[in-house]
Design a protein around this nucleic acid. Structure first.
Length: 280
DNA sequence: CGGCAAACCTGCGAGC
DNA sequence: TGCTCGCAGGTTTGCC
């Protein structure tokens, strides 16, 4: 069994699990159980996957890219509640919210399960992948060496909105979501409500390593399992136990025991968690 | 262009 | 036990 929930570390965890199950394998059976997710599946989606061998699986931001042997790429996004469940190919009927099931020549089965159906599937010619409308505008990968303080500082300049909201903008840097935005700002000691443009270079020089370290540690932990995320082997990720502030309203942060504890506020409709004493 | 609210859809936990 | 409300990891659209 496998699955996921989607910020960069969770998608990376799913990517690695899927690679173990599918790379080098031919898809001998593909079945969809509804017309699509947040948008319709591509025309003849199941037929176009059927019989193809999966050569390689990679991740770009929160997207999974499965490279097929006919020069096409299967592009998948997990939305909020999407999982990839890996198991033996048996005769079990599709489970509740299973929307797509593939079976491999060596007897494995991967079910895409997504209660909220915010996920997305598409097909794209490999040569055009970088130009795909969903990928073309994405910012740098935060774990790439090319993602440097100078790059982030340039992206933040001129943005009047809060730094926390800016980190969620996938065109600025791709892959950070609501959990890791709060956690990275805590590590960097930066108040999430500050205007992005006011974050000085020395602060950006703390923020970039903070982003990288929290993502790397979360990947090593198999991601964070709050509600949905599972690893490919069915185990829970455990990084949620390492949260300093996320979902910890009123509790002390690791660095201080101020009476009010971690604060929660809403920015652009999303919860933000931070320590007012530790973050300035 | 920037920023924000709402919408997409279902499940779950808290409170009554 | 059961109902209602609020909230949830993401992205897109539309309005100001």
């Amino acid at each position: 069994m496998v699955s996921a929930m989607p910020e960069l570390p969770e998608v990376e965890t799913v990517c690695r699990g899927l690679a173990l199950a599918l790379e080098g394998r031919r898809l001998i059976r593909v079945q969809t159980y509804r017309a699509g997710l947040r948008r319709p599946f591509p025309l003849d989606f199941a037929e176009r996957l059927q019989g193809r061998r999966v050569e390689r699986i990679a991740r770009r931001a929160k997207y999974l890219t499965l490279f097929l042997d006919d020069g096409w790429v299967w592009l998948a996004h997990l939305g909020m509640s999407g999982r990839m469940l890996v198991g033996p190919a048996d005769e079990n009927p599709p489970g509740k919210h299973d929307h797509l099931i593939v079976e491999t020549e060596d007897g494995r089965r991967v079910a895409y399960n997504d209660a909220r159906r915010f996920g997305l599937m598409d097909l794209c010619v490999t040569a055009d992948l970088r130009l795909h409308p969903l990928l073309a505008a994405l910012g740098p990968e935060p774990l790439d060496d090319a993602f440097t303080p100078l790059v982030l500082a340039a992206a933040l300049a001129g943005r009047s909105g809060p730094i926390k909201t800016a980190l969620l903008d996938q065109t600025l840097v791709a892959g950070i979501g609501n959990i890791y935005a709060s956690e990275a700002l805590f590590r960097a000691g930066i108040d999430p409500t500050r205007s992005a443009a006011t974050i000085g270079l020395e602060e950006v020089e703390r923020l970039v390593p903070a982003i990288k370290s929290v993502l790397i540690e979360a990947i090593a932990a198999g991601g964070s399992s709050l509600r949905d995320h599972r690893r490919t082997d069915g185990e829970l990720g455990y990084f949620q136990h390492a949260f300093a502030v996320y979902d910890r309203e009123g509790l002390p942060c690791p660095d201080c025991t101020c009476a009010e504890g971690v604060r929660r506020l809403v920015q652009a409709g999303r919860s933000t968690f931070y320590c007012a004493k530790r973050q300035r």
